[in-house]
Computed example of a mutant assay.
Amino acid sequence: MTTLFRAEHLRTATPALVDPFGRRIDYLRLSVTDRCDLRCVYCMAERQTFLPKSEVLSIEELARLSRAFIGLGTRRLRLTGGEPLVRKGFMDLVCELSRHLADGSLQDLTLTTNGTQLAAHAEALAWLGVRRVNVSLDTLDPDAYRRITRGGDLARVFDGLAAARAAGLAVKINTVALKSDNAHELQDMVAWAHGLGMEITLIETMPLGEIEADRTDQFLSLEQVREAMGRRWILKPLMKRTGGPARYVRVEETGGTLGFITPLSHGFCEACNRVRVTCKGELFLCLGQEDRADLRPLLRDHPHDDAPLIDGIREAIGRKPKGHDFRVARNGDGSTVMRPMSMTGG
């Protein structure tokens, strides 16, 4: 059975995924690896333990899993990590998924990256049909970047951004707001991004995983940030939606788009249309909940039959919760979810 026929068969033979609250689930964030070439202080421990290869889905399994979701109505697919571009065979996966862009069964294929490997892959990504990338970047100061990422080289990210823009990729910068590390330069980052024609989204630090830092010290409310920016700029609310949790404004003075993701100060669950699958095949129904479905046995125990996999996905979606339980406690870490963000996928 060809890939095209298989995708078309699934699309016509199975109805779309709808959760218990009537939300149509058409957006998949798929982690291809838990590994990363950086060690950002808010994301993972300095000496992070990674999964053995046997527990990680192969490129072929990731492609098969994606086909099943596409057949069940997924129209947006974001590839994440860890850092997806460090995964061996990653571009083969993009090539396979690009076929679904060509036949119209997939509307949008994107990735989230830290940008360090982007210079080497931007042109090929654009050629395969990727139209935009999200680049995680929390500072424009080389010393601060080195400290936040535990040794990263900011120049490599700038090279990646230049390559992406030259290849015709739309770039959105994702910046985690950190009270002690970058609060003073968030407005400068917005002006910089807009000056280069890039969108930027600010994100509150999320209580995911065990890290050395105290999350109480890191947390910065974006309500306060937005209020301060409103004293400098005119922020015009937009109806723009990209399938994610951000709420957008137009900065009148720069002409650029600015997003806010506020899991702690203001929930974003009411219109949630997405689920996440980790690189080991665990389907998480909510970023801030531990309920999951293990899809890896359904892939490996039934290598030539997708029916059990489809049934497993459907059963899990039937348990999708209404919203997350994120909080930052005042007695230390305050994490409600112990798995690291690098495991879940961004």
Score class of each variant (00 low, 15 high):
Thr14Cys: 07
Phe21Tyr: 15
Gly22Ala: 15
Arg23Cys: 04
Asp26Met: 04
Tyr27Glu: 13
Leu28Asn: 09
Leu30Phe: 02
Val32Asn: 07
Val32Ser: 02
Thr33Lys: 13
Thr33Ala: 02
Thr33Leu: 12
Arg35Asp: 01
Cys36Met: 11
Asp37Val: 04
Leu38Ile: 10
Cys40Ile: 09
Val41Cys: 06
Tyr42Cys: 10
Tyr42Trp: 03
Cys43Pro: 08
Cys43Leu: 05
Ala45Asn: 09
Thr49Ala: 15
Pro52Thr: 08
Pro52Lys: 13
Pro52Gln: 09
Lys53Thr: 12
Ser54Thr: 13
Leu57Pro: 13
Leu57Cys: 10
Ser58Ala: 09
Ser58Val: 12
Glu60Ala: 15
Leu62Ala: 11
Ser66Ala: 15
Ser66Lys: 05
Arg67Pro: 01
Ala68Thr: 04
Phe69Trp: 15
Phe69Gln: 03
Gly71Val: 09
Thr74Cys: 15
Arg75Tyr: 12
Arg76Asn: 14
Arg76Asp: 08
Arg78Val: 10
Arg78Pro: 05
Leu79Asp: 11
Leu79His: 07
Gly81Ala: 11
Gly82Pro: 12
Gly82Thr: 10
Gly82His: 06
Glu83Asn: 05
Pro84Asn: 10
Val86Ser: 01
Lys88Pro: 00
Met91Lys: 07
Leu97Gly: 00
Leu97Pro: 00
Arg99Glu: 05
Arg99Ser: 00
His100Ile: 00
Ala102His: 07
Ala102Val: 10
Ala102Glu: 14
Asp103Ala: 01
Asp103Arg: 11
Gly104Glu: 04
Gly104Val: 05
Ser105Pro: 00
Gln107Val: 01
